[in-house]
């Protein structure tokens, strides 16, 4: 029973991980930028949700669309104004500039939000229900459902809508996309905005299940990176599998080895995947 409960907790956590990694994988796959500031955008999404909850008294789950919209606009502007300068540049330049962004955003967050730990605690925060002897925390379940729903939604968007197809076109063949009426600069900005919007929602959900402070970004970028490597960049479903896998692996590690070793497990898995199957468990990586 304990094992089943731990597995359930791992899966619920994993859904959230998948959503965190989704934006990173999308941007990586289309813009060929490993966005080291991805976690900082997750952090901003968490604070946006926090302030909408505490100041505007909006239910945190209803605040998510606003957090997503704000982060989309921010991401679009950051891509247009800053990242466009290094697009198709050497990998080192993109790493350097996104690392710099991460530092600046974190510092500004510390300046404006202070370094205090905060939590988003709606009245139903402690509500659980029982499922055949297993305890299912309501907030975690809602976060999980939203995360999986958004990931599937993005998948459908990329596969079946015209803008989604244009995004894939730019990532697969830039020259042909340009010749057939697609403006790569616009696609890049929209894609980066989508990536940060997804980060924003992931951050809001993270804030409902965990404490937030300005420094949570770095570790979340690293975890997102691990998931993107495991799941590959081609397919949002790979990111779901990678996220669930990582969530379960961390939960099992916490149970059998100790909660301080969860990062050893996640990055150990990264190293193993890179050695054994560098193309990712499902399909292609960059």
């Amino acid at each position: 029973m304990l094992l089943a409960q731990v597995l359930l907790n791992g899966l619920l956590l994993g859904g959230l991980y998948a959503l965190m990694a989704l934006g990173l994988a999308l941007v990586w796959g289309v813009l060929n930028i490993v966005n080291l500031s991805h976690g900082a955008f997750i952090m901003l999404g968490a604070y946006a949700t926090y302030f909408l909850f505490t100041q505007a008294h909006l239910d945190p789950f209803l605040a998510l669309p606003f957090a997503a919209l704000a982060l989309f606009v921010l991401g679009y502007a950051v891509q247009r104004g800053i990242l466009n300068l290094v697009i198709r540049g050497p990998m080192f330049n993109t790493l350097l500039i996104t690392f710099g962004l991460e530092v600046v955003i974190t510092f500004l967050a510390q300046l404006f939000f202070s370094a205090d730990f905060r939590t988003i605690n709606p009245v139903y925060a402690g509500t659980n229900f029982d499922l055949g002897g297993l305890t299912v925390p309501q907030v975690q379940l809602m976060a999980f459902a939203i995360a999986i729903g958004l990931t599937l939604g993005l998948w459908a968007f990329l596969l079946h809508s015209r803008p989604g197809r244009s995004i894939r076109a730019v990532s697969q063949n830039l020259l042909a996309a340009q010749l057939y009426g697609i403006e790569p600069r616009r696609i890049y900005a929209v894609t980066f905005g989508l990536g940060t919007a997804l980060a924003g929602v992931a951050g809001g959900l993270y804030g409902t299940v965990s404490q937030i402070n300005p420094y949570i970004g770095t570790a979340l970028t690293a975890k997102s990176f691990v998931i993107a490597i495991i799941g590959g960049l081609d397919n949002p479903l790979g990111v779901i599998v990678g996220g669930l896998f990582l969530g379960v692996a961390e939960s099992l590690t916490a149970l059998y080895i100790g909660p301080t070793y969860t990062d050893v497990a996640s990055f150990g898995i990264l190293v193993l995947v890179l050695i054994v199957k560098p193309t990712g468990l499902l399909g292609r990586t960059a």
């Binding site: 197809r165 894939r168 076109a169 697969q172 063949n173 020259l175 042909a176 340009q178 010749l179 057939y180 009426g181 697609i182 403006e183 081609d234």
Partner: peptide, 23 residues
């Protein structure tokens, strides 16, 4: 712009076909 040219009806089949291979 290339965009506008495409809309006006001037298109190109580039050398090497340049299909979207994974579609």
């Amino acid at each position: 712009s290339p965009n506008r040219l495409f809309a006006l009806g001037m298109v190109q089949v580039p050398e090497g076909r340049q299909l979207f291979d994974r579609m």
